[in-house]
Amino acid sequence: MNSALLNYYEAIERASADMLSAARNGDWDQVVKLEGACAVLISQLKHAASAQNLGTEESQLKSRIMQRILINDAEIRQLAEPWLEDLDGLLAGKPKSIH
């Protein structure tokens, strides 16, 4: 098994789970920081993946990890919608509405 590539996927999954936790707590600064960490990991993964391939078992594990990352991402986006609307309102000079 090619654990080096899977380690990247697992690290990205951990970061996405941490982002989700921060989003649930309303800690958007932490979400942004973790998003930056994810971007670095994804860049490193792309570089490593260009030189290596995953076997069948590893590809199946990768798919399960990616599904969990996508689920986390969807919930983060859902949690971020009100925050982004408030931010848009502030930038446009509109008073903040109460939810």
Rank of each mutant, 00 (worst) to 15 (best):
K96D: 08
I12D: 02
I42H: 06
S43F: 02
R77V: 06
S43M: 07
W28F: 04
L79E: 13
A37F: 15
R68M: 02
L45N: 03
N7G: 15
G93E: 02
A74C: 01
G55C: 04
S97K: 10
L20D: 10
E13R: 15
A51N: 00
N72C: 13
E57V: 06
A80P: 01
V40E: 14
S3E: 14
L90P: 04
A51G: 02
T56M: 10
W28V: 15
N7S: 13
K94E: 09
W83M: 15
Q44T: 00
M19G: 06
D86W: 10
S43A: 13
M1S: 15
E10I: 05
A11L: 02
L84Q: 10
S59F: 03
E13F: 05
L41M: 15
G36S: 12
N53D: 05
D29H: 09
A15N: 12
N72Q: 10
L79K: 03
E10T: 13
L20P: 11
E57Y: 12
A92F: 04
L70S: 12
Q67C: 09
A4K: 12
D73F: 06
L91V: 14
R77D: 01
S59Q: 15
T56L: 10
W28I: 14
R64K: 13
E57C: 02
S16V: 03
A17K: 08
I65H: 12
G55V: 00
S3Y: 08
A15V: 11
A11Y: 01
I76H: 07
S43R: 14
Q67S: 14
Q60V: 01
N53W: 01
S21I: 10
L70Q: 13
E58I: 00
L20A: 09
L91S: 09
S43K: 12
L5M: 10
N7Y: 04
W83P: 02
N53H: 06
I69E: 07
K94R: 13
S16I: 03
S16C: 07
A80V: 03
I71G: 04
G26Q: 11
V32N: 15
G89Y: 07
I42K: 09
L79C: 05
A80L: 09
E75C: 02
V40K: 14
L34T: 03
Q78Y: 08
P82D: 07
E75K: 04
I76F: 07
L54W: 03
A51T: 05
R68Y: 00
S97N: 05
I69Q: 10
K33N: 11
T56V: 08
I65E: 04
N2Y: 01
Q78I: 05
L90T: 04
E81Y: 05
Y9H: 09
P95C: 05
K46W: 00
A11I: 00
K46N: 05
L41G: 04
